[in-house]
Design a binder for these strands. Structure first.
Lengths: 213, 213
DNA sequence: GGAGACGGAGCGGAACTCGATCACGGTGCT
DNA sequence: AGCACCGTGATCGAGTTCCGCTCCGTCTCC
């Protein structure tokens, strides 16, 4: 089992980590802590998550949790960041040039990737992207969905013949936001994802980019 | 200044209130508590809101807060409920029959109502609907947006010649969800609401209901 | 006078700190 | 090469602080 996932940095620089892990064991520790947090959140929701729960489930002490995270909220933000990275990874893999027939089909593949994460990633519905956590003032320049939209737009321009205009980028941004909102709704009450609502999401994505790519 | 708003019940039965206010002064107190909570949330976000802050800003003691609310989360839920009710009120007022030229125009008026609340209601972006709180299992049967969609669909059927079909209700539900998501994004980084994104929201709503009403 | 409303000290538990201790891995000595 | 040593990363958990919440005495309205 590959605890240390590939060779990319586990968490982006923007994620609020107190001490970057140096030794191999601590890299695994950090991942385990996040896994534990995800599992707890999946069961009882992030509002009720306590740092003690995270520590206990990870087989660590409270002190270890606070070695890596400045506070409870940072745990949630880091988990959100990791989830965003995983989504980005899948999306990037999906959007290699010519893998899909059209730019629109590529966008629908992004929607599928989102759906898949809801199904496979524990706690994903609760800590989807950084945006769910309401911290004022905002801790990042742009929202996770906006970053996502940039990546998708770049890929569509590079590999699917989309023009690099503000119009196209606006349309892609809207499509990503819509996909996120509707998929989230499809999973809000149905753990497997309401099929009718997922179909509706695909429909909405098509409708909103129609004639703009 | 009209603290006690009109004569409608201040909070719906679903909102978790400990003691319904009897005397007039306490009705005002309750509203003040919620106003204070909204102000605090507007400044520091609901994650960091403490019951002591609410009490202090309202000029009340902790005990008074807990006289009305069973716990901290109930404060947030009540505020969310009040916000939902205010939106519902505006929407209902907007959707009287024949006020708009078409069902689509009526939907765009709903979008405007949402935008207006973001501008005028402190903390609205943080505690928009009750769904923000991640408590598992879910505390309500359906989401606030879904309830909203029902009201809108009913109005469109009654006053704007829309057919009462699952197709129409699905389309309206999607439109409401999209409107909510995109307006939220327009206000995420721009306190006044990013004009381009708001225009995009209107475009998306049109696109998604095109030919279905 | 009685019920509704209010205040605030105090309790319990959760968030977070901090200094002691352990483990890894590099370094130099034999 | 093998080994003792040592510096730093990593871990632990008791203790402290802070916050959610209770309880009961006091005050206010009808």
């Amino acid at each position: 089992m590959n605890i240390i996932e590939s060779s990319t940095p586990l968490l982006s620089a923007s994620a609020p980590i107190r001490n970057e892990p140096v030794q191999a064991r601590s890299t695994a520790r950090l991942a385990t802590l996040l896994d534990s947090a995800a599992a707890v959140i999946d069961e009882i929701g992030y509002e009720r998550l306590t740092t003690a729960m995270v520590a206990e489930r990870a087989g660590a002490s409270i002190g270890t949790v606070y070695r890596y995270f400045p506070d409870r909220i940072a745990v949630l933000q880091s988990l959100a960041a990791r989830n965003s990275e995983r989504l980005m990874g899948r999306v990037a893999a999906e959007l290699v040039p010519a893998r899909h027939a059209s730019a629109t089909d590529a966008l629908l593949a992004v929607l599928d990737a989102m759906t898949e994460l809801f199904r496979t990633e524990p706690g994903y519905r609760s800590v989807r992207v950084g945006d769910v956590l309401d911290l004022l003032p905002p801790t990042t320049e742009s929202t996770a969905n906006a970053a996502m939209a940039d990546v998708v737009a770049d890929a569509l321009v590079a590999g699917y013949g989309a023009a690099d205009t503000v119009e196209v980028r606006l349309a892609v941004g809207t499509a990503v936001e819509i996909a996120d909102a509707l998929v989230a709704r499809a999973f809000a009450r149905d753990g497997r994802g309401d099929a009718a609502l997922l179909a509706e999401a695909a429909r909405a994505v098509r409708a909103v980019v129609a004639g703009r790519l």
